[in-house]
Design a protein around this nucleic acid. Structure first.
Length: 271
DNA sequence: ATGCGGACCTGTTAGC
DNA sequence: TGCTAACAGGTCCGCA
């Protein structure tokens, strides 16, 4: 489900109810996520205050005084702020209950999400320490992508979706960014000029920023922390529009399979 | 080092 | 209507 804009939307939504609040209980109904929820998680979090809530890539980091909760939403996860007394529904796997009487509820039908605990600096954690730069940061520039891509034969689409290259660009926004930059997703990463990488960088930042403004993209089941969908779906130019006319040239949008993922593009506008 | 395919899960939809 | 297959927003791991 969620790519960077959806995680950022979630972070902004839950922050006022989480930051500075004390955890009074952790209710775990299902431990079997991508990795099992650690046995000591409840003990680690209980009676601790959440000091900071940050996002790195698609991970949410809940900092306490003695460690950090690492949370990933996987493909189908979502977080909501609920009244503590609200009865759980199917796939509501975890509640983090606060002294305020509200709780943060983790819902994830496919259980590709994760909840892990780490002591020390979470950026040193195995899952975070190999990640590429944040796409909205100043470190994400044409020179960087150009240098990383030299001699690489991989398609540009699978290259920019690789979190070691840049984080936060998932399947939807990869197709959208490449359309905006007029780059064919099949093109080899190593054959693209520095100037075109400059265009691509601008496109990625633009797409992600606009998606964050609209509250993310809801295809079927993404909801924000209020239970509301995101409205960027209305702005999608190619994703999910196979066979429909390109908004630029009216020719039908093509669908290809790259790295086992559906990829949408206009063969006429993107070269 | 790079690049590819399989794996982890459940739910929805398309096709017969 | 009912069954089956394919597909879905992520990403780690193991192999060539």
């Amino acid at each position: 489900m969620p790519e960077l804009p959806e995680i950022e939307t979630t972070r902004k939504g839950i922050a006022p109810y989480v930051v500075g609040k004390r955890v009074t209980d952790v209710i775990i109904r299902e431990r079997r996520l991508r990795w099992p929820i650690p046995a000591g998680l409840k003990r680690s979090l209980k009676n601790k205050a959440i000091r900071k809530l940050r996002r790195r890539a698609k991970y949410l980091l809940f900092y306490t005084d003695n460690g950090c909760l690492l949370l990933h939403l996987g493909m189908s996860g979502s977080l909501r702020i609920i009244d503590n007394k609200w009865p759980p529904a199917k796939h509501d796997h975890v509640d983090i209950v606060f002294a305020s009487g509200r709780a943060l509820r983790f819902h994830d039908p496919r259980r590709f999400g994760s909840m892990l605990w780490t002591k020390g600096d979470p950026m040193d954690h195995k899952l975070l320490n190999q990640l590429g730069p944040e796409p909205l940061s100043d470190a994400f520039v044409a020179d960087y992508l150009y240098a990383r891509s030299r001699k690489r034969t991989q398609a540009i689409k699978t290259f920019i979706i690789d979190s070691r290259i840049v984080v936060g660009v998932g399947n939807i926004y990869a197709s959208e960014s490449l359309f905006l930059a007029r780059i064919n997703p099949n093109r080899k990463a190593g054959t693209i000029s520095k100037a075109r990488y400059g265009t691509l960088i601008v496109a990625i930042k633009d797409v992600l920023n606009r998606a964050i403004e609209k509250g993310g993209t809801t295809l079927r089941d993404f909801i924000n922390s209020d239970g509301q969908p995101g409205y960027f779906k209305n702005e999608l130019q190619v994703y999910g529009r196979g066979g429909e006319p390109c908004n630029n040239c009216q020719r039908p949008i093509k669908v290809a399979r790259l790295g086992q993922r559906s990829t949408f593009y206009c063969a006429s506008c993107q070269t």
